[in-house]
Write a protein that binds this DNA or RNA. Structure first.
Ligand code: FES
Ligand code: FES
Lengths: 145, 145
DNA sequence: ACAATAAAAGACAAAAACATCCTTATTTAA
DNA sequence: TTAAATAAGGATGTTTTTGTCTTTTATTGT
């Protein structure tokens, strides 16, 4: 519905990495994928993208892995989503018209634009850290056993 | 974002057909596609699906085409969407967990479930006819010139 | 230095979504 | 009763998304 598989895996992985960010050791791709039930190599690609976009940090070599800086932990979800789905995703027309505009709106525009706004608010108002905390406190999960 | 191309074309086509339902003549696929700027054959397939699901009516042969009964005009959008995207689409987990549940929620569950509810409301509260009327009164459009 | 480790990168494969084309079935007007 | 029109159906093709496998590059502990 809202997110592509790529985006789902990306968010889940980032949240897992964030949830491990108290520890000093970095988190390897293997461990990440086990804990979020995502395909190993595909997820690695996604993390590459996020790393290039400076939403994650990584280190190669022995004892390497992924980790997040304090700054990265404070990023709102919307930054992650836009990095993966593209900046435009939250301004396109819901019925697929070439542009979403008030001047020539589609028949769903009013209601859709309002919901799209809710989505934006949700994604802007939740940081990766917020989500990680809900994991750490056992209030939320990244896979179902 | 919300809808697949298939769904977008399906909705646009249905709304166009609805907007022509005052006339006695039925509406051909050619005319439909011109007016919604959608691919001819692909859209035809989608209309087949909607017709099989009794959300549209059709007639073959000379002067045939698509049309909608009074009852069909009153269907809320959600019926269209579920016919195309599948019934489950509005109850799946936003982060792709196997199930969306209150018991083992994903970290986005609370906010996502609420938005998903808004979407359901929007789609339940708008009939195809409603959208067609906004077209007919020039308040909305199905393509941008 | 060297071997081991782990991410990055690139090539490839499978599945799904999107799209076209051709044939068939049905209807109607002439 | 026949020809034209029009949707339905089936086969096929293309593109995008999703996923795997292999090689390369960087880092580090020994
Ligand atoms: S024009 Fe369709 S959502 Fe704005
Ligand atoms: S569990 Fe993820 S949206 Fe409900």
């Amino acid at each position: 519905m809202l997110f592509s598989k790529t985006c789902e895996y990306g968010i889940r992985a980032a949240v897992y990495i964030a949830s491990q960010s108290d520890k000093t050791e970095k988190t390897g791709i293997e461990e990440i994928c086990e804990n979020i039930e995502a395909p190993r190599h595909f997820t690695a690609k996604i993390l590459q993208i996020l790393t290039r976009n400076h939403l994650l940090s990584s280190q190669k070599g022995v004892n390497g892995g992924f980790y997040m800086t304090a700054e990265q932990l404070q990023q709102p979800m919307i930054v992650l989503v836009e990095a993966i789905e593209g900046k435009e995703v939250l301004s396109k027309c819901g019925l697929g018209l070439k542009a979403c505009s008030e001047v020539e709106p589609c028949p769903l525009h009013n209601k859709y634009a309002s919901i799209r706004n809710n989505i934006k608010q949700m994604l802007s108002g939740v940081t990766i850290k917020d989500m990680a905390v809900s994991l750490q406190t056992g209030k939320a999960f990244l896979k179902i056993d």
